[in-house]
């Protein structure tokens, strides 16, 4: 099961990188979202996959009687999803505001912070 999922991670990252190479900021953000999902999926796979065995300990026992799925990566992914959601939502809001204020989403024309031809007046 790990193999096909690893392939999915690869496809997600390839698609994400392709989108991020675009000049349009919205494409860039969609690329980031895809790669963020790919990262989460990759963590999931690194915990090794176990089918149909949730990490539950029956009453009266201290350890589960048979091998169960590794719960730690799942906890990590939950944290990462929440954080990623926050960051990407912020990025989307920022891009929306930038479009409103700067009037463009084309990164090549965003040169306010770094003007193309800075003033180089030498002082007398």
């Amino acid at each position: 099961m790990e193999g096909p999922l690893a392939l999915v991670v690869g496809i997600l990252i390839a698609t994400g990188v392709y989108l991020m190479l675009a000049r349009d900021l919205l494409h860039y953000l969609f690329g980031l979202i895809l790669i963020s999902n790919a990262a989460n999926l990759a963590i999931f796979i690194t915990g090794r996959l176990t089918r149909a065995a949730p990490a539950l300990v029956p009453k009266g026992l201290e350890v589960p009687p048979m091998p169960v799925a590794n719960p730690l990566p799942q906890a990590l992914i939950l944290t990462a999803i929440v954080i990623g959601f926050g960051l990407l939502a912020f990025a989307l809001a920022l891009i929306a505001q930038a479009y409103k204020v700067l009037g463009t989403l084309d990164v090549d024309s965003m040169r306010i912070a770094e003007p193309v031809k800075p003033k180089r007046k030498k002082s007398p």
Binding site: L25, Y28, L32, F90, A91, L94, I95, Q97, A98, V101, L102, V107, M110, R111, I112, A113
Partner: peptide
Amino acid sequence: LDGGIKYVA
């Protein structure tokens, strides 16, 4: 906003 976009990205 202009600098922020690059920083965030």
